[in-house]
Amino acid sequence: MNQIEFLQLTSPFKDKVFRLAKRLLVSTEEAEDATQEVLVKLWSKNESLVEFNSVEAFAMTMTKNYCLDQLKSKRVQNLKMVDNNFTDNSDCLVKKLEDGDSLNWVEKIINQLPEQQRLIIQMRDIEQYEFSEIAIIMQMNETAIRVALSRARKSIRECMTKIENYGIEKY
């Protein structure tokens, strides 16, 4: 396989890899690095790529594993994100609410979900993969994916309702 063929093969899902990496790693730069890493790994596998029936699914699995590894290695070094690390948390919340940027809120909520749910939401609701494809990428069975997805969607809904009713509802 030469470079042009490789580019043609990877360009349809390159952005999907990037978005999946960004969903997990949050930072754009790190997501770009991850995408590059995945593509370089694919390129080095060059000859054996033809044997896979879905290069895209393989690339997505690689991305998932790479990002989870990245997160794991970072978690050891970094300060854990606990609420009391931020002193002005509530202040920020109110300010953000006033901005009313609800799309940003959805992103924030999704990024607070557990990694597995984040991955599944990304692949189903944003990239619109079929459950069978997600099952291959995640190496899980379809029922487990449906359960996790339903849980993720419901917790997004719950958070959104909470934000909508903030200050109106009595706690």
Binding site: Q3, F6, L7, F18, A31, E32, T35, Q36, V40
Partner: peptide, 11 residues
């Protein structure tokens, strides 16, 4: 879903 990677990947 419309988000795209900005930088080009050197293959």
């Amino acid at each position: 879903a419309a988000q795209k990677m900005e930088s080009k990947v050197p293959v």
